[in-house]
Computed example of a mutant assay.
Amino acid sequence: MAEDTQVVCRFVTRMPEEYRITATPFAVPARLSRYGLSEVVNHLLSLETPKPFDFIVEGQLVRGSLEKVLLAKNISAETTVTVEYIPAVSPPSPEAQGQHKDWISSVDGSHSKFVVSGSYDGLARVWTSGGKCKAELSGHTSSVTAVAVLPSSNNTLMVLTASKDCTARLWEVTTTGTAVARTTAMFRGNQDAIECIAAGPDGSQMCTGGCDGTVRLWNWSETAGGE
């Protein structure tokens, strides 16, 4: 589309009456982003305090220019485009922050009270929902590439980790008082770095995927090799 291309739009909304503008289509520059479109709608509404809006075209949020959405949806600029506007959704703000010393490779937040992270610094860490490091899982001799939380009791967190050191580990972490983390099983058998790990729904088995091109299924008793 040319830089000065105009698109005929019909603006609609499900918001209350005071936020509705004329249903008569009119032309706007195709280069407008959601900020420019917000200015258009605010001007037509004559609001004392400008209100930010998001815009939807055929189910897709306008996150670049209107032109990019039309191209992505294969909509001709010569047609009348229905644009729905809704209250803008603010981006989420972090409630807490925890630090590793290197890239974070994986995170498991499936537990109701704790989050587990794995990092290229060779550690996995258990964090409280408030961002406090509850425990460090130290034992791998290379980067931790994947973590997974198993079904756990009230006072114990069971965690799986995988590493570029070609091993996986099962950890038991006490979560009351001063946390204590210990390795309860180590799984050797992969001939190259393990990149992913997952546990069965009942927590009795796990599988690993490695750079050696294998997927291995393990029982907890098989700490020296895999199936």
Rank of each mutant, 00 (worst) to 15 (best):
S112A: 10
I56V: 10
V115A: 10
S38L: 07
M1F: 05
H111Y: 05
N74F: 14
S106Y: 03
T161G: 13
L45S: 05
V116T: 02
P151G: 14
T24H: 07
L150I: 04
F53P: 01
T79N: 13
S153T: 10
E84A: 11
S90A: 13
Q97F: 05
G36M: 00
V81W: 12
V180I: 04
Q99A: 14
H140M: 15
G64V: 00
A2L: 06
L150T: 01
G225E: 09
F53N: 02
T82Y: 07
M15W: 08
G210H: 12
L170W: 03
Y85G: 03
W127V: 00
G130M: 06
A148Q: 05
T13K: 13
A96H: 05
G118S: 13
G118H: 09
G203K: 11
N42L: 08
T175C: 12
D202L: 13
C133S: 04
G130V: 01
K132F: 10
A88H: 09
P52V: 09
R182P: 00
G98N: 04
A198F: 08
C211W: 07
Q191T: 07
G213N: 11
V8L: 13
T223E: 11
S142A: 15
S33M: 01
A2F: 10
A77R: 02
V41H: 05
D4F: 07
D54V: 01
H111P: 00
V12R: 14
L160P: 01
F114D: 04
P91C: 03
A88G: 04
S110H: 00
A2Y: 09
I194E: 15
A198R: 06
R34W: 01
S110C: 07
L217C: 06
P16A: 14
E17V: 02
S110Y: 02
T174Q: 09
R182E: 07
F11G: 08
L37G: 02
K134I: 09
A77W: 06
R34L: 07
F11M: 04
E18H: 11
G131R: 05
A23C: 06
S142P: 08
M1Q: 05
L160R: 02
D212F: 06
V115Q: 05
S129W: 08
E172I: 04
K113I: 00
S153Y: 03
